[in-house]
Write a protein that binds this DNA or RNA. Sequence first.
DNA 1: CTGTTAGCGCCTTCAC
DNA 2: GTGAAGGCGCTAACAG
Lengths: 362, 362
Amino acid sequence: MNGSTPMQRRISVRDVARQAGVSVGTVSRVINHKPVSPEMSATVNKAMRDMGYTPNAVAQSMRTKTTYTVALVVNDISNPLFSSIAKGAEQILREENYSLFIANTDNNPQREKLIIQSLVHRRVDGLMIAVADETSADTNSILRSLDFPVTLLDREIDLSMDAVCDEHAVGMKTAVRYLFDLGHRDIALITGGDNVRPGRERAAGFREAFRERGLAVMDTWLRQGRLDAPFGFAQAREILSAQRRPTALIAGGNQILSGVLRAMRQLQFRIPNDLSLVSCDDIDLAVLMNPPITVIARDTERIGRVAAELLLRRMSRIIKTDAIKLSIPTELIVRDSCRPVSLPEVKSGRIDGADPRGAGRP
Amino acid sequence: MNGSTPMQRRISVRDVARQAGVSVGTVSRVINHKPVSPEMSATVNKAMRDMGYTPNAVAQSMRTKTTYTVALVVNDISNPLFSSIAKGAEQILREENYSLFIANTDNNPQREKLIIQSLVHRRVDGLMIAVADETSADTNSILRSLDFPVTLLDREIDLSMDAVCDEHAVGMKTAVRYLFDLGHRDIALITGGDNVRPGRERAAGFREAFRERGLAVMDTWLRQGRLDAPFGFAQAREILSAQRRPTALIAGGNQILSGVLRAMRQLQFRIPNDLSLVSCDDIDLAVLMNPPITVIARDTERIGRVAAELLLRRMSRIIKTDAIKLSIPTELIVRDSCRPVSLPEVKSGRIDGADPRGAGRP
DNA sequence: CTGTTAGCGCCTTCAC
DNA sequence: GTGAAGGCGCTAACAG
């Protein structure tokens, strides 16, 4: 019964019209809830139900030039961050009868390009995308040339584009301050490169926090590269194997956390005794780890919902405004992965409530 | 520039034909790689490129009655299991120029029904679905009435339907045997209900393993309900708060693990000293937990790939066979979450290498 | 309010 | 090989 010819001969408005003894126009009006006399409406609805009629969305799209379809394009949908976003977005979109395409770029600009082209081919009404590289001129020009609305997910490529971004810099600053207050001075951060907003902002927030206190960041402890687990692993290994080691480490991304934890296990670092740890995103892993990990959290499903709402507004042409930038706040959730630490010796007679134990790892 | 009228007047085959000085038929043939003289092909391709022409997939679908579109319908795309499946499926589908819709049912049969209806409205070419409840007559009849191929994801509702299923029973048996061999006899399992294959099969495998050894399962320790974290939490709490407690617990689902871990933390049970733990699915959480958790693993991305391939074959009408059932094997990955335990006293003089320490928790 | 009609953009016979 | 014409199912004018 499956695998038969594609889309068997189905019932059309014409069939319904004949059955109901009305014109196709009337059937169409009933379908689209346009003014129709009650009795007509009843007859037509009955006919539709009796015949098992379902309007053909393809034909509707053909006529109306609207597909009620939106795409979500991300690096990797199996990243819990993106799958949460997908969930939030789908929820909002479905309420408005939109359907959601998803596609993975694998952080490959070539694939990303192909995917976008397939979306214009399909005539989607809108796009939510976390581009792989904000500095790619190619991607940017393609994006700008699209004739449907685009919402950037935590990316900034251009003033003319809607975006929903997270306050990574603020979050990072809060986290670093928190570590400062615990007495940490030797703090490392592993995060994405400057070509992608989360990495850029986290690094910026990190630097700013140090500046605020008049401290200098150790360049060897600020590692920017990619937001994936292998990068987190490699960098954590390096940092933790060096002669001089930080007392605290911030995993600047949920995938990076996974790499960091692997490295820590391998090198037998214990949390928080040997190293205080802060991560980003309140995923299961962070919550259930032993000890539970302090994180810079954000409501990831909400990102999806907000992005979908923004896109919806834009698609409905209610807003003709210039680009809208929306912010998602972050929140530091303090758990048990950071321990207080004595302050390093200072030359000038600064006052600090240091405990007698030395900093760093024995 | 965004939010303008939907799909601006775009270039059509006619425009290209005029520009290239050929007929629309020829343009169409070029697009579809039908036999065309080389020079014609060149001229047309140039015209298309010059004009920035992209075929309209909606119109193509209208004519060909094929949308090159497939849907993945699951309970919750943010479940790492399903997002992995989505990833695998999307990868395969894209190679064949199919696009993937996703939708969440939230385990709500009502929503599930609405979603399926929206898919027939959209005229998708195929569907991959993990139905919320295999016993729902409503869902089943809807599914059977569809005129496009359906692939069930780890569900069995009917002989006539393609499916890719995991060998949960085998996996569970292996796990229980492993625990038996460690000396455990008091083993609990928390998993989904019988109305959904993973729960049913895991429970069956569990029972079978006991039967194999001529042991009786303690009914109070076989908890079947839902595959979500709250259920896992509630059941684990109950089991672990009771007077008599198991020495080992199997979390029969990745979400259940999360609930179980929460309960264990709350009750201050340590792994594996106070309780040996086995879980399902090799997610980050299990790997990185301290200690790392022994799991019944399966290649989740592969499930998606296999399901997509099966659907593709079915859609291409190459196979007219009756329903195809594909199996995904499971593998027990032994880590450090289970400890050996002395055997309980036995009446008859059975030989067992018991160690002197008593079973259970102090 | 309701019926009639002309396409939306494309593919696919059918003649040539 | 190529051009001309019909129609997929629907909506949006336009008359009535």
